[in-house]
Amino acid sequence: MNFKVGDRVHVTKLDGGKVDFYATLSDFNSRNDITDLVNCTNRSLEGVGVYLPNDEDFGPDKEDYYTLATDEEDSEPVEVQYIESENKVELDNHYIVEVKKGLYIQDVSSNYYYFQFTKNIKNARIYEHKESINRHAELVDGRIVSIKRHIEV
């Protein structure tokens, strides 16, 4: 596997322990065997060093392991559902944060150190104002998705 600075990776093993988060590879050291992780979906691991594939400690059964991220970004169009009713009222736009395809923020602690995620979009945290969502999306390296809601009267 050949990686380069700026590659987005899916980290599944770190320091010998199983993990599951996404990060971007930063500067490679002079021996080209270690790189730092930045823009991590798990902010507590920001700046952590990991072995590159040419090091003996890299691999699924070793200290560190990651692959190129292929499933984090949304590559499919948004599915739109319509309500067929003459008595429908469209509510103002609302927003949710999608961390990766099919994974959404469900809850956030008041100090932003704890995020809870859900795969069920019905349980996703709904934000009424786009300005209030920016910090949360930034912290988890997620994207803001605009949703429209309707009610039938």
Score class of each variant (00 low, 15 high):
39 N>H: 04
82 Y>C: 03
6 G>A: 10
37 L>C: 01
127 Y>Q: 01
23 A>E: 04
13 K>V: 09
104 Y>A: 00
140 V>S: 02
84 E>T: 11
104 Y>S: 01
5 V>W: 07
58 F>V: 00
121 I>Q: 02
53 P>E: 02
94 H>L: 12
96 I>Y: 01
145 V>E: 08
49 G>E: 12
25 L>A: 05
143 R>W: 05
61 D>M: 09
129 H>A: 14
43 R>W: 13
75 S>E: 13
142 G>F: 02
110 S>N: 07
79 E>P: 13
7 D>C: 03
76 E>S: 09
79 E>F: 09
123 N>P: 01
109 S>Y: 14
14 L>A: 06
37 L>I: 06
132 S>D: 12
27 D>T: 11
101 K>W: 00
9 V>I: 05
66 Y>F: 11
98 E>S: 08
87 N>C: 09
79 E>Y: 11
1 M>R: 10
143 R>D: 04
49 G>A: 13
106 Q>I: 03
101 K>P: 02
143 R>L: 14
24 T>V: 13
127 Y>W: 13
2 N>A: 15
15 D>Q: 15
101 K>G: 01
120 N>T: 04
47 G>R: 07
57 D>F: 14
26 S>G: 10
138 E>G: 04
49 G>R: 09
3 F>K: 03
126 I>L: 07
11 V>M: 05
148 K>M: 14
106 Q>S: 09
143 R>C: 05
115 F>T: 00
121 I>Y: 03
122 K>F: 11
128 E>L: 12
83 I>P: 00
108 V>C: 03
150 H>K: 11
118 T>R: 02
